Simulated scan of single mutants.
Amino acid sequence: MDKNGEGAAPDPALLLSQAWVEAHVRTLALCLKQQQLETQLAISVGFPAADVALPDGSQRKASSLEDLEEALGRATSVEIARAEEAEALAGHWARWRAKDAELGYSAAKEAEQQAADEEQLLLDKLAITPARTIAGVIAKLAVVLREGEDNRDPSDFPLPHIRSVLEDLTWVTGHNTPGESKPLSAARAPIGQQGAS
């Protein structure tokens, strides 16, 4: 196989990069679905919580029995309040779980986590998989850039520099990045005509 990717065996880095792009798109779609379902669930029944009156007269939200225990402590004078708040909280959680079963929020959240785990596994594999072609190098660099842009401000170093190198490589070689139909810098002036007026 030559350095431009021509030959019999596909570049493993290119294949992993393409798989990562597909996993990334799937994760983003599942994340959006999970967020929409969570919003519907919260609007329908609210996030499970109980307002707890503290001994000092202040109020605190509790979303679990542990929160209630922490807020109220173990004093005998508040055992009745603790039991009432625990019952209210248990009822709220029951409504949450019933609506969740109807909407499928927990299933969507679990599917999103599985997709994110798969995406991370592919990203980890890509880091240790040598590219065998220029196309594989470009694909790996495109994945690094996309992952970086999703988790950081795209104008922070080194992302603009990585973007620039990726554009240079795609323009010089004519190879596309995964998910692109044309090189990033298709409108760029040919070498020798840059800076000409």
Rank of each mutant, 00 (worst) to 15 (best):
T129Q: 06
S181D: 11
Q194G: 07
G192P: 10
V78W: 06
S181H: 15
S64D: 05
E66I: 00
D156G: 00
A142R: 07
A186L: 12
D156Q: 07
P178L: 13
V143G: 13
E84W: 01
E38W: 04
L14Y: 05
L14P: 04
L169P: 11
G57H: 06
L103A: 09
A131V: 04
K99Y: 00
L28N: 14
V172G: 00
K109V: 01
D2A: 09
D56K: 11
G5M: 13
R132H: 09
Q35D: 15
G192N: 11
A111L: 04
A50Q: 11
W20T: 05
A142S: 15
L126P: 10
S17K: 06
E102P: 07
S17F: 02
L14N: 02
E119S: 10
V45R: 06
S58G: 12
G195A: 03
K33F: 00
K33I: 05
A49E: 12
P12V: 03
D67C: 05
K61Y: 08
A115Q: 10
Q114L: 13
I162W: 07
D124A: 15
G7T: 06
E84M: 02
I134Q: 02
E112K: 03
A49C: 12
A75H: 07
K99N: 00
L32I: 05
E149N: 12
Q35G: 11
L30N: 12
A90F: 03
P190R: 14
E66W: 01
E79Y: 05
V78R: 09
S17N: 03
R146H: 08
S197P: 13
E87F: 10
G73F: 01
L54H: 11
R163T: 01
W20G: 03
K125H: 02
V25Y: 11
R146I: 05
V45S: 02
E102T: 13
V144W: 01
S77M: 03
P154D: 12
P10T: 01
H161A: 10
I138W: 04
A81Q: 08
G179E: 09
A90N: 03
L126D: 07
A49F: 02
T76F: 12
A196D: 08
D168R: 08
G73N: 07
R188A: 10
R132Q: 13
A88Y: 04
P154T: 13
A98E: 14
L122W: 08
S44G: 12
Q40R: 15
R95V: 02
R74H: 08
L68S: 02
A75M: 00
A9T: 12
H92Y: 00
A101R: 14
A8H: 07
D51F: 11
D124S: 14
S44F: 10
G179R: 13
D156E: 06
L126I: 09
Q36N: 14
T39L: 05
L32K: 11
G73C: 07
Q40W: 08
L14V: 03
L32F: 03
